[in-house]
């Protein structure tokens, strides 16, 4: 319902590196081309990203995984136009990242829920809609629908502080989805949750993704999480962050508890783990 509007020009195929074979919808929505990011002045500059190229197809669920400090958040922030790359470029649906941000293409979910504690839960979800200038009634209706979607329908009038961490993060997801962005950028949204809650949230996120068919780029530390959620996993090397390997996840949908117990799931988890271990030894 949100993505693949016709105005989005298809991108030319065959970029410089690995136009990953993604079966889902074909044409890339996000195209990262030779992105390098250096922080700081010349002498003591930190190279966070080195020549990263990716093509995220429309409707796909991609995970970025890699050791701490390898530049995952930096890559996500470059994609979201919160910081500019030192070299290279990002396009979203044929537009530059800056244009895409101004066109409200991005829904962002951060590691912390980053809710406004002075607003009720419902009004937090309404925030993007207010920015977009949606009329009050419509806004309220949409926010309630989004809260239903993340199963927090009864909590609209609560304050964020009255909710658990997992519930707050679901509110943040509802907020990011409320204005139907074409791209959802999530930076370790479940990093602070316990394993069981995290799995529940994974189930829920997957259900929402299947329903809305939004393109997702998801940063995580957790190998099981990456395998369970993704259609495609990008494994990054330690600093300076490079794309070490891309792994297609061919687990069938809908995924559930039995997916987590399937042989293929374990194979993929092992594959990602071994790649990460190799990466550490580089």
């Amino acid at each position: 319902m949100t993505t693949s509007e016709d105005q989005r020009a298809p991108l030319a195929d065959g970029g410089p590196s690995s136009p990953s074979a993604e079966p889902a919808d074909g044409r890339p929505l996000v195209s990262v081309r030779g992105v390098t990011k250096r922080f700081g002045a010349d002498t003591d500059a930190v190279t966070a990203l080195s020549d990263v190229s990716l093509d995220v197809p429309d409707g796909a669920f991609w995970s970025l995984i890699g050791p701490s400090g390898c530049g995952k958040s930096t890559l996500l922030r470059v994609m979201g136009d919160l910081i500019a790359p030192t070299e290279g470029s990002v396009t979203v649906g044929g537009r530059s990242a800056a244009e895409a941000r101004k066109a409200r293409d991005y829904g962002m979910v951060f590691q912390k829920p980053t809710l406004f504690n002075w607003r009720t839960v419902r009004r937090n979800v309404e925030l993007p809609l207010e920015v977009l200038g949606m009329p009050k009634e419509q806004r309220r209706e949409r926010a309630m629908a989004m809260l239903e979607l993340v199963e927090l329908g009864e909590f609209g009038n609560k304050r964020p502080a009255q909710l658990s961490g997992g519930m707050q993060q679901r509110v943040a997801i509802a907020r990011a989805l409320s204005f139907e962005p074409s791209l959802l950028l999530m930076d370790e949204p479940f990093g602070a949750l316990d394993e069981i809650t995290r799995e529940r949230m994974n189930d829920e996120l997957l259900r929402i993704w299947q329903r809305l068919k939004t393109t997702v780029v998801f940063v995580t530390h957790s190998i099981p999480e990456a395998v369970f959620l993704s259609s495609h996993i990008v494994v990054m090397s330690p600093r300076p962050g490079r794309v070490l390997r891309e792994i297609d996840v061919d687990l069938p949908h809908p995924r559930d508890e039995s997916t987590r117990e399937s042989a293929r799931y374990f194979e993929l988890v092992t594959e990602v783990r071994e790649t990460l271990r190799e990466a550490q030894q580089l």
Binding site: R101, R104, L127, V131
Partner: peptide, 12 residues
Amino acid sequence: AHDELMESLAAP
């Protein structure tokens, strides 16, 4: 983080 949220929404 709140600043970045508003920025990601291109809030005037």
